[in-house]
Simulated scan of single mutants.
Amino acid sequence: MNSTAAHRLLLVHAHPDDESIGQGATMAKYVAEGRGVTLVTCTAGEMGEILVPDLEHLAADKEDRLGEHRRGELDKAMAALGVTDHRFLGGFGTYRDSGMKWHADGHAVAADDVHENAFWNADLTEAATHLVAVIREVRPQVLVTYDEFGNYGHPDHIQAHRVAMYAAQLAQAPSYRRDLGEPWEIEKIYWSAISESRMREGLRRLREAGDTTTFEGMDPDGALPPMFRPDDDISCEVDAGEYVEQKLEALRAHATQITTDGPFFALSNNVGAQAFGREQFRLVKGTPGAPLDPETGWESDLFAGIPGA
């Protein structure tokens, strides 16, 4: 963590790879600009799918060593983005990936069998207190996490949302856990999101290029999953198009979870660096800061309105 940075961003994610998919370009951009970036990952992703045949022996129902492997993948991804301060909530192994299954309606839900140490089963106050310690140490002005549905229903994403939002409240209470440091109020909190119009634009360009398999079943003019939000919900778009290659390198690092012929690489190839490097957010605490984009009315910087931005 660049403790001397005037601007400090804290991101709270559920599993290794979530950060690179959601905000990889923004993270790389802010590091390059000298801003402080801290990533807290809540689990090691032990229940993730393994896309590398030679590593299938690491699966939870075999050797159960995927979490340690994904820890290494996360290290490589953060090196690609330039992020030097990344931590696991409560320390590595404190909380286990809860797993998931797909609901008939197309969103994720908790798996039938959940490990006793699963993040989904975590005591909320205990987990939030681990994060309070980080908040009071790092003293970020901006927090990024998921919305109340975890963007697509994954139980660990939902729990990460709950933990992050509760920790932000506890961290600012002077009388709460004085032993963890001086109270700190986070000025702006954002939930990750994807602009519906941006997604429709990308889908349309994919289909026009003859790609019918990337995001198969999604119609540029049809219904979209809940992670894609109406533009009226979007508050900020960070244009980090210059850092798309760093984002792609971070995605490549998560090789057990993401393939180079998968949807993210198809987007980068067909939609272009400018679109792939634009990441959107919903402001849920704080006041939008100028300048706002005259076309969209969105902020262009998560730190907009914060002194020195």
Rank of each mutant, 00 (worst) to 15 (best):
A160R: 11
T145W: 03
L10Q: 02
L81T: 02
H15S: 02
A164P: 09
V284A: 07
L55K: 14
H130L: 09
G277N: 03
L74S: 07
G153A: 06
D85K: 10
P220E: 05
T213S: 14
L224N: 04
L39V: 12
G217A: 09
D85F: 08
S268D: 13
E295I: 09
D219Y: 12
K101P: 01
C42M: 12
M165T: 14
T287S: 13
D261M: 13
D105T: 15
Q257I: 06
M218W: 14
K247I: 00
T4P: 01
H115N: 09
L302G: 01
A6I: 06
A118C: 07
R8F: 00
R136S: 01
A25R: 04
M1L: 13
G277A: 08
E63R: 14
K62C: 04
H86T: 05
A164G: 09
G297K: 10
L66M: 11
T212H: 11
D219M: 12
L89N: 00
E242M: 11
Q23D: 09
D18R: 09
Q280M: 08
D123F: 10
E249R: 14
A110W: 03
H103Y: 03
H154C: 05
L283S: 00
K101Y: 00
A223G: 06
R278V: 01
E63T: 12
S20V: 14
F88P: 02
F149H: 15
F228N: 04
Y176A: 12
K285S: 11
Q246D: 09
G45V: 08
G22F: 05
Q159I: 08
L251E: 00
L74G: 02
E242L: 13
A32W: 09
L10G: 01
A6G: 15
T41A: 08
A77G: 15
T212G: 10
R65H: 09
L224D: 02
V114Q: 02
I258V: 15
M199H: 15
H57W: 14
P307H: 09
L51V: 13
A250R: 12
W298F: 15
Y152C: 09
K188A: 04
I306V: 12
D85R: 13
A59N: 10
E73T: 09
F119E: 00
M165K: 07
G305R: 07
D54P: 01
V144T: 02
E116V: 11
E46Q: 14
D239A: 12
L81K: 11
E137W: 05
D112M: 07
L292Y: 00
V40P: 06
G106K: 10
R252G: 03
A304H: 00
P230D: 07
H13V: 11
R71S: 05
L224Y: 03
H86F: 13
E148M: 05
T213P: 01
I158L: 08
G289T: 00
T145K: 08
E68H: 13
I258P: 00
L58Q: 03
E201T: 10
E33Q: 15
F119L: 15
I189N: 04
R278Y: 02
L51P: 07
L224S: 04
D64G: 07
A108W: 01
G72F: 12
S20K: 11
W102G: 13
P183I: 05
K285L: 10
M78W: 10
A104F: 06
F303A: 01
T26P: 06
A223L: 12
E126N: 03
P174Y: 08
Y243G: 00
E196F: 04
A110E: 04
L224R: 06
I50R: 08
R204A: 14
F88R: 03
R71T: 06
